[in-house]
Structures are given as C-alpha cells and as structure tokens.
Design a protein around this nucleic acid. Structure first.
Length: 854
RNA sequence: GCGGGUGUGGCGGAAUUGGCAGACGCACUUGGUUUAGGUCCAAGCGCCGCAAGGCGUGGGGGUUCAAGUCCCUCCACCCGCACCA
C-alpha cells in the first residue's frame, strides 16, 4: 500500500479498487470442484423495474454474507444473478410511453446491473440471463412440450376478469372495486379455454413432502399446508323435487357429515350447472347470477361480499328422511372450484350458514352442544375445534359424547353402510392456470390446425420467438392482431395453421431459473452433470410474500422436470433451506394541499421536520414499506455515492433480525459511516504500532478475539446477522481500548478484517492489507475460535430472594451446587434478608442463578 | 372473510429458549480535546421517586421458587388469498 494510502477512509476510491482486484483474481466464478463441498446460495431474482431499491440491497447482501462466509469455509460456491424479465409493467410502459417492451426491459436491466455492481456482491455474473432471452424461454418451451407429452398440461375453460370497454382480460390488480383500472367499466367474469398445469396431481405429495423441509420456516410450511388444504369428508347426492330434467340429484361435498341432521338448506354456486341451466329460462336467476359474477374472481372479494342467496323453488329430500325437504338456493359464497360446487348448510355450526339462515328465515337446528349443557337457541354459530368433545343432541353415528373428528369418521362409516355417498379426500389446491392473454411473456409453443386440432410445435422450431414489431395503440393482445406472426404451418399436416397467442404466466419463468443457473448457456433446459453437482439450492433467500405461490409452483416444477428427465430425483425439493427476509421501511413525510389532500415528500426534501424548499413543517407518518406512492424511498445509489457500499451493506444487516423489517434512518446511515471510519483509523493506528514485546493486555485482547470469532461464526450460521454486527462492535471497542502489543493488535485487526469481510468486504480488504495480511481477505480461510480461550475460571451469579435480585456472588466456574449454596447463604445481603431464619428452599442453577425462598 | 405473522426504553433491537430484562447501535445529557469538512474522547441514560423503595416486555387473567419466554383471553398492526412480481 506504500505512501499512497489515503489519509482518511475513502470508500469512493477504495471500493472500486478492490472490486477490480476480485474480478482480476476471478474470485466469484463458480467452478465444479470435486475436491471441495459445493454450496449454492440464491436470492430471489429481481424484476427489472428500472432502479434497485433498499429491499434489493438487503436481500442480496444477506446472500452475499452467506456466499462469502461459505467460500471462506472452503466451499465451492455458486452465487448467480438473473432477471425475472417478463411481466405487465413492460406492457404498461409500452402503452403509456410507446416504449418497446423488449427495449424497455433490457434498458432497465442495464441500468439496474450498473447500480448493483458497486455493491461489491460476490456474484458470478458470467451466468447472468433474463427470462425474456429467447435462449431461456426457448428451453422453457421445450420443457412445456415435454410436460404436454407427459400429461402434465391440459386445456379447460376457466373464468377471467373481462373489461367490456377495453375488450381485454384484466389481472386482479387491475380490477379496482369491481371496475377496470383504465376504462372504469364494470368488470365481467368471462369463460375462456385456457392451459393448465396438473399441479393437483401432486397435492398429496406436495403436502407430505413439507415435513422433510426442516430448514424452511415453520410458518411457510404451515401456509403451504393450509393452501393445499387436504380435507376428509363425505360426498353424496340429494334427490331433488321439482327440478328440471337431468338434475334429479345434486352432489354435495361436506367436511362435517356429522351435522347432517342439522341441515336446513342446500346452496349451489352461481356457476353450478343447475344455476346455469335455470338462468337460461328464468330472468330472475339470470339477473342474480350476473350480479354474483360482478363480484370478481378473487377469493378475498367473494368472502368479503355480503352473503346473498336466491331461492330456486327446487327442493331436495333429506337422505335419512324422505319426508324432510330442504330448499335449494343459489348463493354467492359457494365456490364452483371447490368440492362439487354445492353444499348443504348447517347454520348451527357454521357462521356463514348461520348468517345466511338468519337472513332468509331458515331453521337453525342444533346438532351438538358443549358437554354438560342443554340445547338452547343460538345467538351465533357454535364452532368448537374438531378435537373437542361435545354432546350430540342430533347425532346419528358414534357415541353421544365424542370429538368432532370421531363423529365425522363415524358419520362417514354410517353413511357408506347405508349407501348414502362415500368418504373422500379432497384438496383445496387447484390446477395452475398458466394462460395469459398478453404479449410480454413466453409464447405457448402450440399450433391450432383446422384438421389436426391443437398440435405441439416441433422442438427444432423452437424457440417460438415473440415478434418485435408490435403496437400497443389499442387494447388487447398485440399477438392476436399481428398481421403475420399467427400464421404458420401445421407441424403435423403442413397445412396453414394458427399459432397459440396466449403466453405463459410469469410464475412459469421463475419456477425453474434456479436449475438453469447451473448451465445457463446449454442447448437443453439442463445438463445432467451440472444439476447433479450444483443442485439443490443450499440456501434460498427472498421475501415472505412468495411463501405460497412461487415456492409451491417451483416445488411442482421440480417434480415435473424430474418426471420428464430434466432434474435428478434428489432435486424434487429444489431448496434445501429457505430464509424469508423482512422489508426495508422508512418514515413517511406528509403535508396537505389546499383541499386537505395528502402530499408526500421524499426524505431528501425534508430537514429537521421541515421542507427544505419552503420551511413548511411536515407530518411524520409511521414507518412503512418503501413505496413510490408514499415517496418514503431512499435510493441506494445516493447512499453509495455519499458513504460507499459498505455503509449501505452494514446498515441493512445491523439492528433488525434479518427476518424482520428494518427501518432506514439517515442518522443510522451516518452512524454506520462514522463507525466504519473509526475502524479504518484504528487499523491505521495499529499498523503504525512498533513491534515491541508482549504487553499486559495481550491476554485479554486474545480472549476478546476468540469470543468474537465464536460469536460471529455462530450468528452467521444462525442467520442472525444483526448479532454478528453487535459482536463486531464489541470486538472493535475492545481492540480500540486494548493495552496490547503491536503484534497482538495486528493479529486481532487481521481477524477483525476476516470477520467483517462478509458484511463489508471492501473495508475488510483495506484493513487486511494494512495489517500485512497475505493475498486477499476474500480468499483467506475463516478463522477458528480456540475453545480454551472462551471459558473463564470464575463466574458471577445473581442471587434472588423470593425471585427478586438482591445480591451477586463470584464463585469458581466449576463450583458444585453445595458450594454455591453455601457461598450464597454466607453473603451479607442474604444474611440481612434471612434475619436469622432458615430459608424454606434454595434453588441453584449452576452457572446461572441462585434463588433463595423465604 | 380465511390463512400466516408481529407487539420489549425516546427509537431499532438483545435476552444462551423458563433463570440478572434492556446486549449492541441510534438519539439525548454532562464533561473534556480539537475546532475545519461526515470531528474525536470520557461518563451517564427504562419509568416514578430527594431517598428508601416501587413499577415495568400491547391489555387482562393463570401456572411456577422464577415468565418477555408456557397456558387462557382480548386488542392493535403487517403479509398472503391463485392474472402484481
């Protein structure tokens, strides 16, 4: 480093220098190395929106800490990066600014990559790809064809949000209060024939395999379990009275057959065949069904809507008593997708049914009551857990007092023996609809032929590339109205045919990118030798908002890829460990305009609670996820320019546990910069220390050093990076105050550099070089803590009297319980409290605490 | 509505999983050094109280020698809900 060493910590110059050094040494190029254990760390890849944000910085820094740490521990590390590049924002930009989606996307990728590079992430950029590269989506199309051949893809009708003014399909987020976001028109539900992945074939398997995902957060496994929603129930048919021809029976599915004697009505979905039949002949039914279809397609909207029904006039006979007739309603809260699209309502033991029965004046017969209570009219539905024992007053199978679970099984057995339906297992999980009526996605590689029907494209014709000459001046899918793109020859008969114009859901793109990173340029989707070596992802890191869909779809895809020969059996669970990180939040600064509407201000426009420009006081609203609409965003680019990447990286890793939200504050960023500056100055001071002989403080410093190694190692392993940072503060303070020799101080400073390196790699290289470290700290082996240096020979124990801390004693670390008790009872403070009396009880927890009970 | 989660000083959080609540950092206060750049150093800092002492982990109740941690109950906020990525 010679005399050119800057006089101050100057990340702007040093960070670029070390990044160039890492590149020159090829530190981050992933290599298959049979001599070393491999480690694959992956952060969920970003959508190229145009700028990186602090959430990205936090996400990728976490992955970087793991990657650099594992590398120092001797692993051959794969740490790639790519772009989830298809999606609606590119089309929106095309519509609003006339941009070309591909150009817009690749421009954004270039900008974001330019913003990410200065962060100094240990990424193997040679493996980079975007999902909108024909090279990538062509392989995706090849797999689609394999899935099709393997019976994992099929077509069926499904409902979409239809905007009747824009004549286009809307995403759920484009439907606001039941109206199209652009046109403002009432959105309709419309049926289209669409492509589906047969994920439901794996329902049972995807559920049971969750148990093996021990390194996934418990909450994510639980959410997936509930989403898959396995249930045991009874399916049976009610025979009808006065029903149209062909509807002699209505099949229902219930998870509570034990409440069959509490039935008071039958309800069918507005999309049920019976409801559809009736609406053709009955204007009242047609109007009601149309009203229901306006609610939208999300489960949330259906559940929140007011529960409404229409009496069809049709009745059904109770299976146990043909004289007992129940009315049949069409009801807006019955889902056609779940079960049979028809239910019987038991208002006494289901709150929705209770509300419905109350509204329409239907009977509410009680089936069971709490043990030891009498049957009495209910004010609300009585819904105890199925594991609780209750007293059946209208039971028909099993014991009079039993749990709900037992009653359900008894009811199924009873019904089956009487020929009333059969016990079935059903899943909530529906097949995955992948068709999108949009341009900017992976084309579905099939052809529609007049004579041959739906024909897969030949693999040698892949990729089916998107045309670039498209216009967005009118609504709808540009592929549909492209003059030539749709025209093609039938791969089977050669006659003129028409391409499929639907493209794939972008979740398809992100369901296998992790596998593609192992061989990103291959002419096949994957390469056996590479997936065998690199899979599985050892550590996957991303937002909890992906807990269900992305992760479940990826688990399905891995199985489908295995079945079609693209992944080995060991990779059917592609992510060995999952970590879900929290968001980066910031305070919101708000003023109001003349009409009292809120006006938001960027943090850099505000100083000391006032607007910089006008001096007007701003209202500070509680911290929330950074969002453009609230303007509570801090641009990482500005932070890196001002303080350097290490400050940004250190800050997002400090304070909050990684799984929780972290609040960005300018004071915190400044404090981080000051700390890193102090470390730099401290290192410079230590580098200049004379050699000298051993000093009295050497022992203490070495003990502090080994404690730091131990603490930082354990906390990185445990994904508690905030605690790693706290340990680094403690060690730095100890080093700054140590009265140690030059040799010991330099050794400690080198270890400090190694321990800091995963979080602040550039500063770590500076310190390492100043202390005469060999080569790059990035390539140095992780230090080991000496266990002998971690223990002390005495320990100070608190003494409680009746659970309140009153004194403390210092005893030998290996003192027996009796010795500790004797020492505690001899303590002055304890003697004062005892006042001559004998204690009732003395609890000694070795190494922890003593509690004297009077 | 359903499913999942979170709640500890002025602020972010820690607590070895039932054993000293507040580690570490920010902010703040006091003192010192130096004043040029974004200073640095030392000390203090949960709340009430002059003190002795009392109170304190979202609210209420319980189990225990001992509860932030376990149980019951209530409240608030956040995330997901299948076409946002």
């Amino acid at each position: 480093m010679s005399g050119e060493t800057p006089a101050r910590y100057q990340p702007q110059t040093t960070e670029a220098k070390w990044q160039a050094a890492w590149d020159a040494a090829g530190c981050f190029v992933a290599r298959r190395d049979p001599a070393r254990p491999k480690y694959y760390v992956l952060e969920m890849f970003p959508y190229p929106s145009g700028r990186i944000h602090m959430g990205h910085v936090r996400n990728y820094t976490m992955g970087d800490v793991v990657a650099r740490y594992k590398s120092a521990r001797g692993h051959s590390v794969l740490h790639p990066m790519g772009w989830d590049a298809f999606g609606m924002p590119a089309e929106n930009a095309a519509m609003q600014e006339g941009a070309n989606p591909a150009e817009w996307t690749y421009r954004n990728i270039a900008v974001m990559k330019g913003q990410m590079k200065p962060l100094g992430l240990s990424i193997d950029w040679s493996r980079e790809f975007a999902t909108c590269d024909p090279e990538y989506y062509g392989q995706q199309q090849a797999m689609f064809l394999d899935f099709l051949e393997g019976g994992l893809v099929y077509r069926k009708a499904a409902v979409v949000n239809w905007d009747p003014v824009d004549m286009t399909v809307l995403a759920n987020e484009q439907v606001i209060d039941g109206k199209g976001w652009r046109s403002g028109a009432e959105v309709e539900r419309r049926e289209l024939t669409q492509w589906f992945f047969r994920i439901s074939e794996f329902s049972e398997e995807l559920l049971t395999a969750l148990d093996g995902l021990e390194n996934w957060p418990e909450k994510v496994r639980l959410m997936q379990k509930n989403w898959i929603g396995r249930s045991r129930g009874l399916q049976f048919g009610f025979s009808t009275v006065d029903a149209p021809e062909g509807f002699e029976r209505i099949e229902v599915y219930t998870t509570r057959p034990d409440t069959l004697m509490g039935a008071s009505f039958v309800a069918v979905s507005p999309d049920h065949p019976l409801a559809r039949h009736l609406e053709r002949h009955d204007s009242e039914v047609a109007a009601f069904n149309a009203e229901c279809r306006r609610i939208g397609t999300t489960e949330e909207a259906l559940e929140k809507a007011e529960k409404r029904g229409l009496d069809t006039g049709i009745r059904v006979r109770h299976p146990f008593d043909t004289a007992w007739e129940l009315p049949v309603y069409i009801a807006n809260f019955i889902l056609m997708d779940y079960g049979t699209g028809a239910i019987f309502g038991c208002p006494a033991h289901d709150q929705r049914d209770f509300d419905f029965a109350t509204k329409y004046g239907l009977a509410i017969p009680t089936v069971f009551v709490p043990e030891g209570e009498e049957d009495a009219p209910l004010a609300e539905a009585y819904v105890p857990p199925k594991t609780e024992r209750v007293h059946y007053v209208r039971g028909f199978a099993g014991e009079e007092v039993q749990t709900g679970d037992a009653a359900v099984e008894a009811a199924i057995d009873f019904c089956e023996s009487r020929g009333v339906g059969q016990g079935v297992t059903k899943f909530r999980l529906r097949d995955w609809g992948l068709s999108r009526q949009r341009y900017w996605g992976c084309p579905i590689p099939v052809v529609h032929c007049e004579t041959c029907g739906v024909v897969p494209e030949k693999k040698e014709n892949l990729p089916v590339e998107l045309p670039s000459d498209v216009s967005f001046d009118q609504p709808g899918n540009p592929l549909d109205r492209h003059p030539t793109w749709r025209n093609c020859a039938c791969p089977r008969c050669g006659e003129p045919a028409r391409r499929e114009t639907d493209t794939m859901d972008t979740f398809v793109d992100s369901s296998w990118y992790f596998a593609r990173f192992t061989a990103p340029r291959a002419q096949t989707p994957t390469v056996a030798a590479e997936v065998d070596y690199w899979m599985n992802v050892d550590q996957y890191i991303g937002g909890v908002e992906h807990a269900i869909l992305h992760l479940l779809y990826s688990r399905f895809f891995a199985r489908a890829m295995h079945r079609t020969g693209h992944l080995p059996a060991k990779a059917i669970e592609p992510f060995d460990a999952l970590f879900t990180q929290g968001m980066v939040t910031h305070e919101i600064y708000m003023t109001r305009d003349a009409r009292g509407r809120p006006v938001y201000h960027l943090p850099e426009e505000v100083e000391d609670g006032k607007l910089r420009a006008t001096g007007e006081a701003v209202q500070v609203v509680a911290s929330a996820k950074m969002s453009k609409s609230k303007k509570n965003v801090v641009d990482p680019v500005n932070i890196i320019e001002r303080f350097g990447a290490d400050t940004a990286r250190w800050f997002v890793m400090s304070d909050s546990p990684p799984e929780r939200d972290v609040e960005w504050t300018s004071a915190g960023a400044e404090a981080t910069f000051k700390h890193l500056s102090r470390v730099w100055a401290l290192s410079e001071r230590i580098a200049a220390m004379p050699e000298g002989g051993p000093a009295p403080g050497d022992g203490d410093l070495m003990r502090a050093m080994h404690r730091a190694i131990d603490e930082v190692t354990r906390t990185i392993e445990g994904f508690a990076f905030n605690k790693s940072i706290a340990a680094l503060y403690t060690f730095t303070n100890a080093l700054a105050k140590a009265e140690a020799s030059g040799a010991a101080s330099r050794q400690a400073a080198r270890v400090l550099a190694q321990l800091m390196a995963p979080m602040v790699p550039h500063l770590a290289e500076e310190v390492w070089a100043m202390q005469g470290g060999e080569g790059l700290v990035t390539e140095a082996a992780w230090p080991e803590a000496d266990p002998a240096m971690l223990v002390s020979d005495t320990v100070t124990l608190p003494i409680q009297i009746n659970g309140k801390r009153r004194a403390e004693i210092t005893v030998a670390a290996d003192a027996t319980k009796d010795e500790v008790e004797k020492a505690a009872l001899a303590d002055d403070a304890v003697l004062r409290f005892l006042a001559g009396a004998a204690p009732k009880k003395v609890i000694v927890v070795p190494g922890r605490i003593v509690n004297v009970v009077l």
